[in-house]
Amino acid sequence: MRRFEYHRAETLEHASRLLAELGEDTFLFNGGTDLLVEIRERLRRVRHVVDIKQIPGLSDITYDETRGLTFGALVTVGRLERLALVRQRYPNLRAAFASLGSIQVRNRATVVGNVCRASPSADTIPPLIADGAFVHIYSRTNMRVVPLAEFFTGPGKSVLAKGEIVTGITVPPALDNSGKAYLKHGRRKAMELSTVGVAVSLTMEDGLCNDIRIALGAVGATVLRAPEAEAMLRGTALDAATIKNAANKAMEECTPISNVRASADYRRDMVGVLTGRAIKQALEAFA
């Protein structure tokens, strides 16, 4: 492994200052499950790591019916995956968390870390976007809150400015009339990067779709919404033919690439298949 310098931040202010002062090639060290592999595999040039794991106040999980679910930057994927609330109210998040890496990785990796890595194939991002989550961002001058759907600017890139740190994520409350699903397509059941990931979160009122958000992973430079497909579904009873048409629309809305994992055409096909299946799975909440 290439050599790097380790810094332990005591506070957010300290971490932010280190990020600003140590220059390029400085990275936050949280779960480390991606960063250390990238250093080892020489995929990322790293001179300094700033460990934020000792900063107090970033490990909390709270839920209330008005604000929703909030968790801090240090909360691991495994902790959230095992939470009864997540299992019962956010089956989409539960599916995404349970499909990330392995049990060992999930006990180390954090959801905030997975989000900030900004990979288009990250499992946690599509259901969080479909649920309308937002991120809390610290900087030494102010705090800001950004909808997750507006957080990403490209593969590995986000709106974070130099010295800014994501302190937590809030997911809106899970309503009784909501249905949620996340489907991951890969070649095996664990230790797998998504070939395609599709999240659907919807609400139903009087048998009609009140609102729906579809988020598509690994088929664009960032996780994408499928706004035209969503528009075709809102206000309908989500019958099979409408779902099929919307799934076809989602295929048009994505922009996949070909690589060793799958061809662009195949990914596009899977967006169609998984969008249809995810809507049906989300509707099972009402069955």
Partner: peptide, 29 residues
């Protein structure tokens, strides 16, 4: 079904020389 070590037929470069993209079935599979 899943394993193939792929060599780029234009350059000779390995495209999946690692366990991220060389897909062996695991115990769960």
């Amino acid at each position: 079904l899943t394993e193939d070590y792929v060599i780029d037929k234009k350059t000779g470069r390995s495209l999946n020389a690692g366990l991220v993209d060389y897909k062996m079935p695991l115990s769960m599979d």
